[in-house]
């Protein structure tokens, strides 16, 4: 028995005549990162994590005296909330999205196209930066409305934010790229919560118990938040330690991610 061959009726002759070639790298990067940015801003849970919770904390902690803070409260709260926003986007949101993207096979799908591997990672990080830009603008406008006034520390604050993106972004890729999606989801949320309260983000290092403050100062959360408080709220302290701590985390996590991240 010979099965009859299907007729190619639906597809006009020449439709698939080969014309291969790699697309333009800039266009690939723009298409991928803008798609990932749209996906992040469309995802309700991500928006809750990256925008709504930081906004509620910024307004709430500025207006309500729950934690002992120097006046004007908004300066210190804005610094803390910026650190939270960076951690939420670059680490928690990124790890969870990466874990589920791997589960749904997108990383493998894109690895089989002409998209180079470095661009696959660069596209994700550009999308993270895009989200952080949205966060900085929205949170900055709300802080202005609450009475914060930008001073000389804004430039240093932006450098800290970028270093925070690098350190947390590498950690997010490392977590999301090595474990199963459900475990990533659970761990990323637990770490977010622990660092929020005990990692030097909402509670300044000076208010934490001494031992915990030392540990928190060496964590990317404590380093970023304390650095931003020094830069934006005039908290006493040297910027050297926060900068060095963030660089160290970015390098160590970046190297580990490059070696350990799996595509499936």
């Amino acid at each position: 028995m010979t099965a009859s061959r299907p007729s190619p009726g639906r597809f006009a002759p020449g439709t698939f005549t080969p014309r291969p070639g790699r697309g333009d790298l800039g266009r690939m990067l723009a298409t991928q990162s803008s798609l990932e940015l749209r996906l992040a801003l469309r995802n309700g849970e991500q928006v809750l994590l990256t925008l709504l919770i930081p906004i509620v904390l910024l307004v709430g902690l500025s207006l309500v005296d729950i934690i002992d803070l120097p006046a004007p409260r908004v300066d210190s709260v804005f610094a803390s909330v910026l650190a939270l926003a960076v951690m939420s986007t670059a680490f928690t949101g990124q790890a969870i999205a990466f874990g589920f993207d791997r589960r749904y096979g997108v990383v493998r799908r894109l690895a089989a196209t002409a998209l180079p591997r470095w661009l696959l990672v660069a596209g994700r990080l550009v999308a993270v930066l895009g989200t952080v830009v949205v966060q900085v603008v929205v949170l900055g406008l709300i802080a202005l409305a609450l009475g914060w006034r930008p001073g000389g520390g804004v430039g240093v604050a932006l450098v800290l934010v970028l270093l925070g993106c690098a350190a947390f972004g590498a950690l997010g890729l490392l977590l999301g790229g090595t474990l199963r999606a459900e475990i990533v989801l659970a761990l990323a949320n637990v770490v977010w919560f622990v660092l929020l309260l005990g990692g030097g983000i909402v509670v300044p290092l000076a208010t934490l118990p001494a031992g915990l403050a030392t540990v928190a100062g060496l964590l990317p959360s404590g380093a970023l938040a304390e650095g931003l408080r020094i830069a934006l709220a005039g908290t006493d302290g040297s910027l050297l330690q926060p900068l060095l701590v963030l660089v160290a985390w970015a390098v160590v996590a970046g190297v580990a991610a490059a070696r350990l991240v799996r595509l499936t």
Binding site: G21, L35, D101, G105, R108, A114
Partner: peptide, 25 residues
């Protein structure tokens, strides 16, 4: 690839457009 592969939240046309952008023609 076996079982395809895409971002869980991506629309079908968006995904195809991304893969198309990887090619010259």
């Amino acid at each position: 690839p076996q079982g395809g592969g895409a971002y869980p939240g991506v629309r079908a046309a968006e995904m195809l457009r991304l893969v198309a952008a990887c090619s010259a023609h």
